[in-house]
């Protein structure tokens, strides 16, 4: 079943993705079985009890209680899906990796119609932000008087992550609600103004050539359809190299 669904689904480049895809596979098995069983019964019943073939209806109709068991069965399967798969998976999905894993921390701030990606830079600390300082060259209003801000790196629609390193993304928005969706990472989180939400994933394969994108899944205005960024999974060396040659806030914003 996962293969069957897989023919349409984007490649899965994340560690937790397999688990979610398996869940999808199992639910669709349940759906398929229900549909086929009921469907077969349905077609047979329509043929068998056609007025021509069965002129006299039976007042009492079906006597068996198969359906009751079937419904009980469905209920049980749903309980299993919840307890054994969905809820644990959700728990893992919402529980950020601990510091010992040395996760890569990034802030993603959505705006109409682009993704601002904010890296803490060399010192690994995010600089102070202040909306009042927002300008076209300083989309996030980084406060350069804060020394920790100077070395920060802010890119537009360019989201680089490191292979096999846990990544924590703090998602928020400047204006309206967007939705930060990474199909290849099986990750999505609404970007809600006034709210910072952390999501995390661990890339387990690099693009090697493929173009992977950040989609916006929530209607956010007339540019919603073209609000997309790129996500690149780099090996450690490439990632560091890339980050090193990206202009720091000090440079990009100037003074």
């Amino acid at each position: 079943m996962e293969k069957f669904l897989g023919q349409w689904m984007p490649i899965d480049a994340s560690e937790h993705g397999a688990e979610l895809d398996r869940l999808l596979g199992i639910v669709h098995w349940l759906m398929l079985i229900l549909f086929v069983v009921w469907g077969a019964y349905f077609v047979y019943a329509l043929w068998r009890f056609n007025a021509k073939r069965n002129p006299q209806a039976s007042y009492h109709g079906a006597q068996s209680h198969v359906s009751t068991y079937a419904e009980g069965g469905i209920a049980i399967v749903e309980v299993v899906l919840l307890v054994a798969f969905s809820i644990p998976a959700w728990y893992r999905w919402t529980k950020p990796p601990g510091k010992e894993k040395n996760p890569l921390e990034v802030h993603v701030v959505a705006e109409q119609f682009a993704w601002n990606v904010h890296y803490p830079g060399a010192d690994g600390v995010f600089g102070r932000r202040n909306v009042k300082l927002t300008t076209s060259s300083n989309p996030l209003g980084l406060d350069l008087t804060d020394p920790r801000a100077q070395d920060d790196v802010v890119t537009l629609n360019q989201f680089h992550v490191e292979l096999d390193r846990d990544t924590i993304v703090k998602v928020s928005s400047k204006d309206v609600i967007h939705s930060f969706k990474l199909p290849v990472m099986r990750a999505e989180q609404d970007a809600i103004p006034g709210l910072d939400v952390n999501i995390h994933f661990k890339p387990i394969r690099t693009n090697n050539g493929d173009r992977w994108e950040i989609a916006c899944a929530q209607l956010c205005g007339l540019g919603h359809y073209r609000m997309r960024g790129e996500i690149h999974v780099d090996k450690k060396a490439d990632f560091d190299a890339w980050l090193a040659k990206e202009p720091t806030a000090k440079v990009s914003i100037g003074s």
Partner: peptide
């Protein structure tokens, strides 16, 4: 998931109502 069960019951009941009918 709980709310899906009554829907299943309703639909099943309608399906089973066909059994033994004389369908026009």
């Amino acid at each position: 998931m709980i709310i899906s069960i009554p829907s299943v019951i309703i639909l099943s009941a309608l399906f089973i109502s066909l059994w033994g009918g004389s369908i026009r």
